[in-house]
Design a protein around this nucleic acid. Structure first.
Lengths: 399, 399
DNA sequence: GAGATTAGTTTGATGAGTGAACTTAAGTCG
DNA sequence: CGACTTAAGTTCACTCATCAAACTAATCTC
């Protein structure tokens, strides 16, 4: 996953900054502050928080209001002095999120406040990439038509596979797609906007990190496991999804649990996916695939021996694989998503305890394990957030 | 490892930027450009490269020259026009790097050009932390005394253990130290400068990424394995060492190779360290510990069955453990250091090939495996670089 | 030695933020 | 009810870093 502005982190700017960069920077600071605020701040609040003068804050906010990136609302409360006008992320700015899942196509339009302002979900007829993506594009255009004068600022696409920097899907085993130019095929949906393509696990993790655009959730550093037929993952550090060289970071499904374990489609043996993927869990537990999420914990609680065995297998494999991950990336919170989000608290605690035993740093900071918030369209929401992230990061281009 | 203050320019600034930030930023851009240049650039070269005007470049360079952060040199070559004055990183700026190893204490003074301008190596009498660190501080003061008017800008300390953000060594199994306030004990060495403490693997990786301060080496994204009695590691992305929440990232030694393997001191089982650490390799190969680096490859080549077995064990364990790491962090280059740097090319290739088979992204980007440059004081050099990094990142505070 | 060429410097203009004074729109209190 | 207090927002002159362009300096070429 590539960052919006792509000037990496804090690297010494490769090129000089000029006066206009100052303004861009401060516009971004204001948008970020408005997005993360719990209550709508006034211009004066922003000036104090960002240690700029009221004059500057006022001028910049005026520009943002004109561009509809922030909205003014009445904040009539019985305070002394001239009443402040509260500022909120603009509802006139929306991002479009698209997702291809193994059996569904999703489109979501989300505004800067994180509200869903348009949605479509359709079952996908398995088929070749071109026709499935055409169907998706059609749905997206329908959602776009319903936006009623709101400003579309970008399109994100979440895919269950490995994606390169140019928006090409290199490989999606569970879709049986190889080397598909997704960004190119969907370009028409974005109009003049770039179509941002990324792995669904990264997109889902984005929502976990930022439940609303520009507003960090309770977790800013965690490893996100998103389990379905395939097991993916993402590493989030400081509220940002960590990319690998080719956006290939976070392939948790292929961390080795046991080198003498079963062969995996990836060419290796004993991969995590072979223990906790939907296919494996369904087989061991005897549950049909679409009942695993809802039925596994209940089955185990009821004493069904196959369900108990499946839960034990999941617990064991996750604790081994995640311990390696936590030791390597030094991030000690884990969020479980997909069908793993339905595990019961006792199992979660068992995983946590076994992880603690294997993690070298747990003595100073115990490992935390939680489950993802239940959003049936996390990846699509994340894709929309991804599109909106550009406005939050560089509002100057939208003013 | 924590970044030097660095207000990231690209991340949403938590606070407004003002005119002076512009200057700070552009000073940093110039220093970075001077450091990474292959030939000493002129003011005009810098202006062109950074797309600022010659006027601006000239003024900022003048300030840096006055502060001795960059030096002017004659660049008399038969070119037309007024001869340019070349610019090089200043030799008047030095960082001090300290390292505690299991049997040695090292101190190195390095200038901004990456030249060693002072060094001391002494054997360490095993002892309690306080007395060992006092001895180290004494050596450091001696080196500092020999700096002859150069400006000391910081002190870095490399330690074989886990370190927290405040410069406390939490745990160093191979030194048998626990919870030592290293930064506090060594504060006198730094004078008014902060003492920057980090894991030796991170410091060594820094030198691999940046052979000279501010100048990236051939690898900017890699996983660095530093093997000795303990096995540590560091993840370098974009030329920067990735920190975990508590600088605990990169604990490669405790990635699980086989959950049913031997117990490890960390409380887990089958950790990489139990297969490729100096202790394990010495035992399997029958070589004395201090001969492992030099004798292992030779022994295996000569057909010694114990050495062959040791090499096979190392090959197997590294390929399993590193595959997980590469899949998780999405970085496909691996640099082997410590006694692993002495493995012969055939073994390196065998590790590479087995890794390729296990890495999900290898189809698009084959895994690369190389060995570290042989620097007997990599950690101390890295610590000195770490101290100098602050000048490169924020020269304005030194002007 | 005149001319060409490029490095570096000087000078005034521009744009963005600062500080302080000013205006506006409430609530408070006699 | 009207004067006073309080705080938000606005205006305006000022500062500072960069830009643009003219100018000076030093060397090579012919």
């Amino acid at each position: 996953m590539v960052e919006p502005g792509a000037t990496p982190w804090s690297a010494p700017a490769p090129v000089a900054v000029r006066q206009s960069s100052l303004r861009e920077r401060n516009l971004a600071a204001i948008v970020a502050a408005v997005c993360r605020a719990e209550v709508p701040p006034s211009r004066a609040d922003l000036a104090a928080e960002l240690s700029m003068t009221r004059a500057t804050a006022g001028r910049l906010v005026d520009e943002l209001v004109a561009a509809r990136v922030v909205d003014e609302v009445d904040r009539s409360q019985g305070a002394r002095g001239r009443p402040a006008k509260g500022l909120l992320p603009g509802t006139g700015i929306v991002g479009l999120g698209l997702a291809v899942e193994t059996d569904r196509l999703l489109v979501r339009a989300v505004d800067l406040r994180g509200r869903v302002v348009g949605e479509r979900v359709v079952g996908s007829s398995a088929g070749d990439a071109e026709s499935v993506l055409d169907a998706l594009a059609h749905q997206a255009r329908e959602v776009r038509r319903g936006l009623q004068g709101r400003r579309l600022v970008g399109v994100g696409v979440a895919l269950p596979g490995i994606v390169d920097d140019d928006g090409r899907l290199l490989r999606a085993p569970n879709l049986r797609w190889n080397d598909v130019d997704v960004a190119g095929i969907l370009a028409s949906v974005g109009g003049r906007h770039r179509v941002l393509v990324a792995n669904e696990a990264d997109m889902a993790a984005l929502v976990e990190a930022e439940p609303r655009p520009g507003r960090l959730g309770p977790w800013t550093d965690f490893v996100h496991v998103s389990a379905a037929v395939g097991v993916g993952g993402a590493i989030v550090s400081g509220g940002r999804v960590v990319a690998g060289e080719h956006g290939a970071a976070g392939e948790l499904g292929h961390v080795c649990v046991d080198p003498s374990g079963p062969a995996c489609g990836c060419g290796s043996t004993g991969c995590l996916e072979q223990y906790v993927g939907l296919r494996a869990v369904a087989e061991v537990s005897g549950l049909p695939r679409d009942r695993v999420a809802t039925g596994l914990a209940a089955g185990a609680a009821a004493g069904d021996p196959r369900c108990v065995a499946a839960v034990e297998q999941v617990t064991h494999a996750l604790s081994v694989a995640l311990a390696s991950v936590v030791n390597v990336v030094g991030i000690s919170s884990v969020v479980l998503g997909g069908h793993l989000a339905a595990l019961d608290p006792a199992t979660i605690e068992a995983i946590r305890a076994r992880l603690d035993a294997r993690v070298i740093g747990s003595r100073w900071k115990p490992v935390q394990v939680t489950v993802a918030r239940g959003d049936h369209a996390a990846a699509a929401t994340g894709a929309a957030h991804r599109a909106l992230a550009d406005v939050v990061a560089r509002p100057a281009t939208w003013v």
